[in-house]
Amino acid sequence: MIFKALVSACVALVILEIIFHRHASFPWESWPGFYALWGFVSLFAIVVVGKRLGRGLKRDEDYYDE
């Protein structure tokens, strides 16, 4: 239910963006849906990279206590 609400909110935002167009400072800002995509991809990438990192850096909780 929450997931559906989230998805609909996202869709609504993309539509809103078309109505209230933002003044673009950088060229990419005028691409429609840029921030939406950016947010999605960034978080995805962060988690994936973090997961990779975790494989290398995770240790047992008493690692330092040995």
Binding site: F3, L6, V7, A9, C10, L13, V14, L16, E17, F20, H21, R22, H23, E29, G33, F34, Y35, A36, L37, W38, G39, F40, V41, S42, L43, F44, V47
Partner: peptide
Amino acid sequence: DLGHSITQLQLLLFAALAFAVL
């Protein structure tokens, strides 16, 4: 600049969406 608020919301909510998907 209302557009700024909207893009910021987009960024955040789509990030949340990505989290939910993950």
